[in-house]
Amino acid sequence: GKMTGIVKWFNADKGFGFITPDDGSKDVFVHFSAIQNDGYKSSDEGQKVSFTIESGAKGPAAGNVTSL
């Protein structure tokens, strides 16, 4: 299901970062391709987002990331 969290950091040059879930669980990796914004796929530190957890090649990753 959908979770909410805060972007801990995001490196636009490398195209990835981490989200800290609101439920206190482990930080989740986020790749720019998962960000659902139109246009520039980046996110700012401290941005509140909703997301799903997908199982990626390197473990859990955020999917369907949407700014709230």
Rank of each mutant, 00 (worst) to 15 (best):
K14R: 10
Q47E: 11
D44I: 15
N11A: 06
F10V: 04
E54H: 13
F16K: 00
F10Q: 03
T66F: 05
G59K: 05
D38R: 09
S33E: 07
T20C: 12
V49E: 01
K41L: 14
A12S: 11
S55Q: 14
G5Y: 00
D23V: 05
I19G: 00
K14Q: 08
T4P: 01
I35N: 03
K8H: 09
W9R: 01
F51K: 02
G63L: 13
S50P: 00
G59S: 05
K41C: 14
E54R: 09
K58P: 07
I6L: 07
P21L: 05
K26T: 09
K8D: 04
H31L: 06
G5Q: 00
S55E: 13
K41W: 15
A12E: 09
H31K: 03
V49W: 02
D27A: 06
G46L: 10
V30I: 09
I35H: 03
K26I: 09
F10C: 06
E45S: 15
D23R: 02
P60R: 14
V49N: 02
G24D: 04
V65W: 00
G46E: 05
V65F: 01
K48M: 08
M3D: 01
G15F: 03
I53R: 05
N11I: 02
D13L: 13
F16A: 00
P21K: 00
G15Q: 03
A57V: 13
A61N: 09
S67C: 13
S33D: 07
M3V: 09
I53S: 03
G59P: 05
Q36N: 12
F51M: 02
K2T: 11
Q47H: 12
G5L: 05
D44V: 15
G24S: 04
G59N: 05
K26R: 12
S43P: 15
G59W: 07
N11Q: 04
D23C: 08
V7P: 01
H31E: 05
G1L: 11
G15H: 04
A57Y: 12
E45N: 13
Q47S: 12
F32N: 07
G5F: 04
G46I: 09
P60E: 07
P21A: 03
K41N: 11
K48S: 06
G56V: 05
S55C: 14
A34N: 09
V28N: 00
V7E: 03
E54K: 09
T4A: 04
K14D: 05
K58F: 14
S67Q: 11
M3R: 10
A57G: 09
A61Y: 15
K48L: 10
F29V: 01
K14F: 09
V65H: 01
